[in-house]
């Protein structure tokens, strides 16, 4: 039986990788993928605690997070494609139309 702290540490590692990719990479699709990675890290924490306390609510909440992530993925990728059509770039430094 693996203690839950290992799962929490793995979740922290995944979240940190997501944070690093979010700040380092300049391609908007990579930024998007790092957001998905961070969501998954939080889901791992939920499942770990749900398993420790034998709670069903943890899995229910993971399910809701997944649905929200799916909706976010669909809308986000549609926005990315629309932006690419309009600006023909994916670099977040060059998509600065709303900057003052």
């Amino acid at each position: 039986m693996v203690p839950i702290s290992w799962y929490l540490i793995l979740s922290a590692v995944l979240f940190s990788i997501g944070v690093a990719a979010f700040f380092i990479k300049r391609n908007i699709i990579t930024v998007f993928m790092s957001i998905e990675l961070m969501l998954n890290a939080v889901n791992l924490t939920f499942v770990g605690f749900a398993q420790q306390w034998h709670e069903v609510s943890g899995q229910i909440f993971v399910f809701f997070v997944m649905v929200v992530a799916a909706a976010e993925a669909a809308v986000g990728l549609a926005i990315i494609i629309a932006v690419f059509r309009a600006r023909s770039t994916l670099n977040v430094d060059q998509i600065d139309l709303m900057k003052l």
Binding site: Y7, L10, E36, N40, N43, L44, V47, G48, A50, Q51, G58, Q59, V62, F63, M66, V67, A69, A70
Partner: peptide, 18 residues
Amino acid sequence: LYLNLGAEFAGLAQLLVY
């Protein structure tokens, strides 16, 4: 990992959705 933790629902949903 989810399947290993005994969370079949979350594991299968992860497999399908992600």
